[in-house]
Nucleic acid binder design. Sequence first.
DNA 1: AAGGAAACTTGATGCACGTCAAGGTCGTGC
DNA 2: GCACGACCTTGACGTGCATCAAGTTTCCTT
Lengths: 227, 227
Amino acid sequence: MNTPIDIGRMLSKLPLFQQLRDSEIFSLTAGTREIELAKGQMLFQKGYLLDGFYVAVSGQIKLAFSSAQGNEKVVALIGPGQSFGEAITFLEKPSPVFAQALVDSRVLHIAKQSIFAAINGDSAFACRMLAGLSMRLHGLVQDVEDYSLRSSTQRVIGFLLQLVGAAASGATECELPASKHVIASRLNLTPETLSRILHNLAEFGLIAVKGKKITVLDAEQLKRFNP
Amino acid sequence: MNTPIDIGRMLSKLPLFQQLRDSEIFSLTAGTREIELAKGQMLFQKGYLLDGFYVAVSGQIKLAFSSAQGNEKVVALIGPGQSFGEAITFLEKPSPVFAQALVDSRVLHIAKQSIFAAINGDSAFACRMLAGLSMRLHGLVQDVEDYSLRSSTQRVIGFLLQLVGAAASGATECELPASKHVIASRLNLTPETLSRILHNLAEFGLIAVKGKKITVLDAEQLKRFNP
DNA sequence: AAGGAAACTTGATGCACGTCAAGGTCGTGC
DNA sequence: GCACGACCTTGACGTGCATCAAGTTTCCTT
């Protein structure tokens, strides 16, 4: 069984809470509960109202929406240490996305009122929340830019480069953080198209694909690659 | 010439600042300056660092980015009372978009330090900033959803319905808030396509177009219209 | 190890939307 | 009033990516 002490320790490791005093962490702990999710399990549906936000501890969560025709679009992939749901918590509006565990996962739920208390007690915490939301916004604007004025190949390349980090121009191996189906959706394309693009890039000698392992052979050239 | 008193009055009318005390408004005023923009004038370029954010007082500002190939994409249209640039102010990152006046406009620039002071003095203000950013995020998620799983016709319909508001099913006239070129870009399509779609909807008897004036003849049927 | 279901690949085909090019319409200045 | 330019419309055409339909591989189950 997990004790409140565990939760306190986990909270204090999160970027968002790292600089809080022990007493503040303690009061946050009171409003926090741990949730275990099995692979494929829904955390919340589209349209739900949240009374607090979440932080992933382990596993992987996908945020997505699905259209009337049943096809779904992945908006974000959440890994350990990342939070989600802040915006709708503050807005008190129904969530535009649903959250589902891609693998067995553990998340923390932090009650809205605990957050408000922390904001009241510590304006630096408020600033950190603001910075967190700003980063999220920044990322979404980036997504919109990608979707609207880059080709599918360019989006895949951007994704790969981000995956290997700002590494040097040598060969770098990395592993896809999820199934190709999920990655494709995140990049706003079909699995078929992603498959073809990867095949293509491999043909040009820019990358090597072996299952989920992808080796970027020449980052510089990949950056410059223009279909 | 505009005196500080004018600025104070304008600030206190903005949603973001409405509940601040007079003394707080006064200290914000000190960090605020007014900027006049001629039609077509740039407020800031893509890549700029902002030392504060903006609030439109009159006129209309477009936020957009442009690709290497020169075509540009409108992310948001800012009208009087709306603020923009908060996120990059908090993040201290280069702006992913540029801001340009579509008509002669006046905006206020509120210095970062004044905002931080206000957050420190009033946690309710911090919450309002958080809510503001959350709303922005919500809107962007909505945009991403529209772009990725709705057809161009559906996007235009959504735009028109939003324009006439949640009005009853009768005929409602409204005016496009900008040139069709700008609207098209905001909806992520070319002017040609927008033109064709409007023509199409008119042919089906759902709307009537006369220059910038558009009359939604049957909102209910328009909602249900499926190409 | 064998079987089966996911996940992935590959090819053939289609269509929504962009692109290019040629008018048309409106407003604005001389 | 006329002429010029900005904005918009209309048509013909091209294409990037989705869709549909088989395979093939991977991996999980028993």
